[in-house]
Write a protein that binds this DNA or RNA. Structure first.
Lengths: 147, 147
DNA sequence: CCGTTTGAAGATAAAAGAGTCTTAAATCCC
DNA sequence: GGGATTTAAGACTCTTTTATCTTCAAACGG
């Protein structure tokens, strides 16, 4: 798969926060219920996102997590980098170390444009962009049995 | 990562067979030496590719594996499907089951074009195409310390 | 101050992926 | 036929990812 489970959950959690537009903090438990993801695992992911400066956290009653910056200033790429690192945006499709312009693998010239397209997509889309379309189109962030 | 290690090795092994242009069979051991990949693991991968009809195998002295069909008739996509299944070509970037035109996730319309581009690339490139550029450009299939 | 709520941090557990090993079966060569 | 070579098949090990559990620290509310 392209993104790790951690990264999928992280993006969905961030979009959840961006789309509800609350003033204060939202508890990890609430988010995990909305996304139908395992709560302890999501707590760990929230921790990573907090350390990366994407979320800020507050302990205690009425505490929880919130976006550290305006949703329009956080790109999906930033979240992917925090969770999975830069590999999908930089690595060789055949896993050959040092593959690049100077020492390409046989697929480099085929793969590079596709890889750059992926990078551009994640880099261009902000949480605000996606949150807006979630609200406008009622897009889902969790599995639903409803048709 | 986009492709599993098994799949990376499988593509490199297939390209190795396509580019050397031998008449008979090549042993898995020889291929693993050329690619610098673990031999027992590659043997298992070769087995999967044989069962998928991409390679044919012959036991005994002077035995080994060979492409089951002309290199021009085997696409990279076929190898990816045999090793990793169809997920990268079909699955939702957020891992939401049932994501599609009728029930899209918030990123569906951003992700789909990128995903289709990946599918087209793997579907369009044959082993013969890539083997030709390996021979013409001396592209490498293994890690080399040489500059 | 005390109890409750909530995230932080680290240890632990389960599952999947990556890689190895052993035995068996087929093929070749003498 | 017998020994050597090579893939087939399955069990097994190791590592990483995914997920859980426990303890601690911070914040709030009475």
């Amino acid at each position: 798969m392209l993104l790790s489970k951690s990264c999928e959950y992280a993006i969905r959690a961030a979009l959840c926060l961006a789309s509800v537009e609350t003033v204060g903090y939202t508890s990890v438990r609430e988010i995990s219920e909305a996304l139908k993801t395992p709560a302890p695992f999501l707590a760990k992911i929230a921790q990573t996102l907090t350390q990366a400066g994407i979320l800020r956290a507050l302990r205690g009653p009425n505490g929880g997590v919130a976006l550290a910056r305006p949703a329009g200033e956080i790109t999906l790429k930033e979240i992917v980098l925090a969770m999975d690192g830069p590999d999908i945006f930089t690595e060789c499709v055949l896993g050959l170390p040092g593959c690049g312009h100077r020492k390409p693998c046989p697929l480099h010239h085929e793969w590079m444009p596709a890889r750059e397209r992926i990078g551009q997509m994640f880099g261009a889309v902000t949480l605000a962009d996606t949150a807006a379309s979630i609200r406008a189109q009622d897009y889902r962030l969790a599995f639903t049995t409803a048709d």
